[in-house]
Design a protein around this nucleic acid. Sequence first.
DNA 1: TCAAAAGTGTTGCTGCTACACCCATGC
DNA 2: GCATGGGTGTAGCAGCAACACTTTTGA
Lengths: 231, 231
Amino acid sequence: MQKPFQINRAYKEVQQITVAVDCLIFGFNEGKLELLLVRRGFEPERDRFSLIGGFVHNEEGLDEAAHRVLSELTGLEDVYMEQVRTFGKANRDPYERVLSVTYSALVLKENYNDELVNSYKAEWFPIDNLPELIFDHKDMIESAMRRLRRRIKTGPVGFNLLPEKFTLPQLQKLYEAILGEEIDKRNFRKKLHAMDFLIRLEEKDKSESKKGAFLYRFDEDKYNGVKNFSI
Amino acid sequence: MQKPFQINRAYKEVQQITVAVDCLIFGFNEGKLELLLVRRGFEPERDRFSLIGGFVHNEEGLDEAAHRVLSELTGLEDVYMEQVRTFGKANRDPYERVLSVTYSALVLKENYNDELVNSYKAEWFPIDNLPELIFDHKDMIESAMRRLRRRIKTGPVGFNLLPEKFTLPQLQKLYEAILGEEIDKRNFRKKLHAMDFLIRLEEKDKSESKKGAFLYRFDEDKYNGVKNFSI
DNA sequence: TCAAAAGTGTTGCTGCTACACCCATGC
DNA sequence: GCATGGGTGTAGCAGCAACACTTTTGA
């Protein structure tokens, strides 16, 4: 394969940088936002936790690599994922030079393959009570959290963390967990109602209360008519 | 150097991915937002333009690489720069597999080294009239523009594109050029005045009008007291 | 004296926040 | 019948957008 003349690039020395993706896998369970981590069972860094990651294959784009890594661990295929940021300090991994492109995934805990997850010794942790993490993985999480907070306020991404049918109290708890603050129930519902992209079903979910809460469904078509999403 | 056991990573094949940084160098001149591009003088892709880029050295972090590339081209050392996004489709560069981490730089046109820039055959283009670009560089620019629009509304980054002393009409034109829309003069000034981080000097700049406009200076200390920047 | 840009306040409206009570049901 | 969580409306306030005239001075 012929290489182009690179007028704008310095002489290309032999690079020894390995490219990896690290996935921030978010789930929502019992009112808590959680993150899936794996424990390192060997030295060095034994017993510390890390994000799920993997090297990028030669014929594979970054987005593909992230989806592959996620799928290998959880068995999930069609997951909402977006690139967050790339971490590239020369010594961020003190054992070898690895560049890491981070991806944020919002998964539905009930959907994934428990056996697969268990076989990798992965564990869920509530976002406000994470263990020690290797390298700069703490920074990655902070970066992804900032992005997630912005995203759920400006777009309908939060629904990826809920089942197809969900109640408004559930949705509100999700927002509260991500934003880390309480939200006024009436104001929250007012905004949702004004944007008018949720469909109220006839069914109720009685698992959380005696009265039961109506189930809703996110409607893609109705959402496309919404100009300014804002919560 | 010993390698750690990578429980969470697939067997590491020999990777053939080269890591580059591409810089989006923004400048502001005569009321226009401009971007610095280099022309390719050789096949393939002759006569098309590209962003300024370079390969990342082995001992060098990404941020360092971006600053080095910028400095090699413009001679500028202390420049406001931030990472934008990483482009990693397998065939984004059809000649070899290159991963590109993009950086956005806000430079003061009057400061840089013209000879250096000329020797690289670099040219400034107004952002609304760019030439054909190679590969996915157009996407990179769109991505960086979206980020820049968000940034100048929520933080004091725009001042990096202006000299230390500037007038309010200049500042407003800068915002209008970046946001691509007209701004009401009185509302714009009201917001700036409310946040109170600009210092009005006694001097006027008479180059743009007979009456002359007062010069202002951005005050870092006063800015640190501002809780919610918003324009 | 006139052309051209700089500078300055008010008003109406919209959207946000704050807030309290009734409802349905299982136990 | 009572405890628990679900559901609903209003009023005050703040922040935003819309808007027009006076000032200065060089030519």
